[in-house]
Amino acid sequence: MKKSLIALAVIGFSGAAMAQSSVTLYGVADVGVGKMEGGKTEMISAGTMNNGTSRLGVRGVEDLGGGLKAGFNFETGLSLENGDTSTAGAGYWGRAANLWLGGNWGTFKMGRTLTPSFYGVAAWELTGTANYSVIGNTYKYINPQVAPTGAIGAGARNSSQFSYKTPNLGGFSAEVGYITKQDNGAAKWDANAIYANGPIGIGLSANKTSGSKTNYSLGGKYNFGNFALATSYNVAHIVNAQRRGFSLGGTATFGAASVTLDLTRDTKNQWGSKKYTNGLLEAKYALSKRTFIYGAYLRLDGDNNYGIGVRHNF
């Protein structure tokens, strides 16, 4: 009898402990047909003219008690053309590999993760930071070995990042990240300040690698209901060459359908031979809460690019 009671107690305790932690498998499947930078029309997956990069991830969180939680996130990218991995970093878990602790005081994270600058832009960018975002592609960090789009003047992700994010205080939040010289070859900091409350979204992003100049972006969005308007000012550097300019765009929603027009205009461009006006036209139709079809046309630095595809979130 005593052994039975002890066994039941152990089982009950184990169940209570397990109930305080959870692990979630999630992902995105995105594939279509399109053309990029004068190439031929072909199947596209994990490319610039996809809405997003197909991915598979696992994340978990454990309640440690007293308001303290611990969590992790591992994420890899893949191409639906052939099943190959398509990561934003050197390893299999190139999209995310991090551990965090959080509570009422905020969240402290360590590892490979999206940058504070990326989240600052995401607060107001009209496409939801799609791969074909005209903002991300115009002022991106130019490196063929990283993902096609990124934050202002930098990649969308940092490796070996220590970061702290404040709790949300009436819509206000801020995050700062730091990478040591030993981990990066040169020390780097990255930060944002965000106000997101109701129809308003405002984000200030800034990042700097030691020995180079500061990249920054300030943007805002207002949602009127069936129509949203966004504008921004952006400054990005490659070494000491600067590209800066502003953006203006809007999204109109008609039930399950939406149309977005977003434009950028250079006020200075030392990366190329002249100043450009770039533009994105995007149409989406939601088949369900998790699946939509899309079409996008991107005019980028004189090149015409397009993509038509399907995205499913799970």
Rank of each mutant, 00 (worst) to 15 (best):
residue 1 M to R: 14
residue 6 I to W: 10
residue 6 I to L: 15
residue 6 I to K: 15
residue 10 V to N: 12
residue 11 I to C: 08
residue 11 I to Q: 14
residue 14 S to T: 14
residue 19 A to D: 10
residue 19 A to P: 06
residue 20 Q to G: 14
residue 22 S to T: 13
residue 23 V to Q: 05
residue 24 T to M: 13
residue 30 D to Y: 12
residue 32 G to E: 06
residue 33 V to W: 12
residue 36 M to D: 01
residue 36 M to N: 07
residue 37 E to W: 11
residue 39 G to I: 01
residue 43 M to W: 08
residue 43 M to I: 12
residue 49 M to R: 05
residue 51 N to C: 01
residue 59 R to L: 09
residue 60 G to L: 08
residue 66 G to H: 09
residue 66 G to W: 10
residue 66 G to D: 05
residue 67 G to R: 10
residue 71 G to S: 02
residue 71 G to Q: 08
residue 73 N to P: 02
residue 73 N to Y: 03
residue 75 E to P: 06
residue 78 L to A: 08
residue 78 L to T: 07
residue 78 L to E: 06
residue 79 S to T: 14
residue 80 L to W: 12
residue 82 N to M: 08
residue 85 T to L: 12
residue 87 T to W: 02
residue 90 A to M: 00
residue 91 G to C: 03
residue 92 Y to V: 11
residue 98 N to Q: 07
residue 100 W to C: 04
residue 100 W to R: 12
residue 103 G to N: 07
residue 106 G to T: 11
residue 106 G to R: 09
residue 107 T to R: 10
residue 109 K to C: 00
residue 111 G to F: 01
residue 115 T to V: 01
residue 119 Y to C: 00
residue 122 A to L: 04
residue 127 T to R: 01
residue 129 T to E: 12
residue 129 T to S: 11
residue 131 N to A: 13
residue 137 N to K: 08
residue 137 N to D: 12
residue 140 K to Q: 04
residue 142 I to R: 12
residue 148 P to A: 01
residue 148 P to V: 02
residue 151 A to I: 11
residue 152 I to M: 08
residue 156 A to F: 05
residue 157 R to E: 03
residue 164 Y to W: 09
residue 166 T to P: 09
residue 166 T to H: 00
residue 167 P to N: 02
residue 170 G to L: 08
residue 174 A to S: 14
residue 175 E to G: 10
residue 178 Y to H: 00
residue 181 K to F: 04
residue 181 K to D: 15
residue 181 K to E: 15
residue 184 N to C: 00
residue 184 N to Q: 02
residue 188 K to S: 08
residue 190 D to E: 10
residue 194 I to C: 00
residue 198 G to E: 13
residue 205 S to D: 09
residue 206 A to K: 07
residue 208 K to T: 10
residue 216 Y to P: 04
residue 219 G to I: 02
residue 219 G to D: 05
residue 225 G to E: 15
residue 227 F to K: 08
residue 229 L to A: 14
residue 229 L to G: 12
residue 231 T to K: 04
residue 234 N to C: 08
residue 237 H to T: 01
residue 237 H to S: 07
residue 239 V to F: 10
residue 239 V to G: 00
residue 243 R to F: 06
residue 243 R to W: 09
residue 244 R to P: 03
residue 245 G to F: 01
residue 252 A to P: 02
residue 259 V to N: 10
residue 260 T to D: 11
residue 260 T to H: 03
residue 263 L to V: 15
residue 265 R to N: 13
residue 266 D to Q: 10
residue 271 W to Y: 12
residue 272 G to Y: 12
residue 274 K to D: 09
residue 276 Y to T: 05
residue 279 G to S: 13
residue 283 A to H: 02
residue 287 L to F: 15
residue 303 D to L: 13
residue 308 I to H: 09
residue 311 R to E: 11
residue 314 F to I: 02
